[in-house]
Amino acid sequence: MPIESPRLWSQRQLLLVGGALVSVLFVLSLFIGQNPLPVLLAAGQSDADISATVQMIFTQIRLPRALITLVIGASLGLCGAAMQSLLRNPLATPGLVGSSSGAALFAVLVFYLGGGVMSWLLMPLAGTLGSLLAMAFVFALAGRDSSIVTLILAGVAVNSLALSLISLVLNLAPSPYAVQEIVLWTLGSVANKSLRDFLLLMPATLAGWWLLRGIGPSLNTLTLGEDTAATLGVNISRLRWRVFLAVSLAIGAAVSTAGSIAFVGLVVPHLLRPLVGYEPGRLLPLSAIGGAALLLAADIVVRLFPGHLDIKIGVITSMVGAPFFLYLIVRTRRTQL
């Protein structure tokens, strides 16, 4: 870490560059698919059938997928940054402290055992509830000023409990296909989503984002510990529940739409933190943009595989994230334990 750190880019510049990157990736993900670009091909043709087909692929398949990827990536990045800042712990991400798997468990319960239109609407809320319960459980288990070790141990316990319960629910589910679908929930997938899925994703996601709006300065004060933050006028328990609820809403919606996609919430804030001078408040929006960019990029990689190889997006994020996670553990061991 450099002793003096000249700030290369202002926050505005970072957000602009990040926004531009996300836009480019978003457009790319509209044009890259399992099939060679049919667009240019269609542009030269006057055949109405072909242009209708291309339009269908764009509006019904690629657009929803790109939108969902964008929103979920942003949620994962944002929630990772918010949780890390709140708990002042670089490993405290929704995936590691069990809130993603808690969300998955409740979404799975509603999806496989429920039925009808209501259950579609209930899934994001069930995910929110599951996420909130898992987080409260880990928090109760690890304690307030939790060390990295206790937090991870509590997270491991909740994650494996949730995983085994998901597996049990899938075994008990009436559908014969359910058993094979655990990988969709535990690794995550954005394939075969429709605009309806996107619309179902949005309400809880926006509610979560809305709750985190303007929270930056309060999170900044936590840099000096909860006591100092409290004497600066921050209502700590309200702040905590606000973040927990916001993360649960956004993660609950994301997981019930695409399963729990690992490591985005961990890697993105870490990569971006030096760029914003380690300041939690400035990290939040940038981390949302970074999460969106990473997930869009991962989904483009997924689609570069031949169509019959149905690679899940979580496979890519885990392949990037797991080595990074190990690196973090080693570095944290060296500096903090």
Partner: peptide, 22 residues
């Protein structure tokens, strides 16, 4: 439809709106 009346992500493939449009 195998096991009609039950639900899974796999069976959801069949209710993608693009199929109807197609």
């Amino acid at each position: 439809h195998f096991a009609p009346g039950t639900r899974s992500l796999g069976q959801e493939y069949l209710s993608h709106p693009v199929l109807k449009q197609l």
